[in-house]
Amino acid sequence: MSSLAVPAPIDRVFRFYQTTVGKKAIMAVTGVVLFAFILGHLAGNLQVFEGQAKFDNYAIFLRSLPAALWSARIVLLVCVTLHIVTTVQLALLGKSARAVSYVKKDNAAASYASRTMYWSGPIVGAFIVYHLAQFTFLLTGPVMEGHPYDNVVLSFQQWPISVFYIIAMVLLGMHLSHGVWSMFQSLGITSPTRSPFIKSAARLIAIVITLGFLSIPIAVLAGFVTTSGAR
């Protein structure tokens, strides 16, 4: 244990990444970044309730800062990639660590959200691909270049699109309700007194985020937000 040899920095990074604790820390840090993005994205999206001009101007404003936009995109892409790669590697490790499964196993003591992370994550991932194809690359759905507000409204007026968004956002909420608490635990910054508070706060913020995102397709389907603006 008390070895005096100090490994080279690159060795240290490699060894850190090799451990389960190191990978979980990377998953947590990238999770924090993605969580921060989700908050910002929600705040931006909710401007749809302030009408077409405000929403379109916001979109134009984002596009007017190519350096910042691409920096953010690269950071997000790196984070998503690391989040997925560490997850896949750890999931495979977990599977090999429990190579023989039980005839009977009771997992009821763990929350439903925590037990379904390997489902909610990939489905949200698939949703993100679809979401980018629709609103960023304008490859699918009733969308046109240069009309972000109309694109949102016309898309969500088609109920299958809205339903998919609603399902994906509920799963995102479930993923966050475990993930946000889990980040603190993986980074070693919980404590017996703070833990219950962090768990409750994680659930609450997951519900708030989900409801925030859901409000948009629901408002469009209900006819509250139309191409001529919010009523």
Binding site: Q18, T20, K23, L90, A109
Partner: peptide
Amino acid sequence: SMVGQMNAEGFGQCTNIGL
């Protein structure tokens, strides 16, 4: 050292689910 040994023994990752 102990985390290293825990990994070397082939135990899986903690997913903070509390079972």
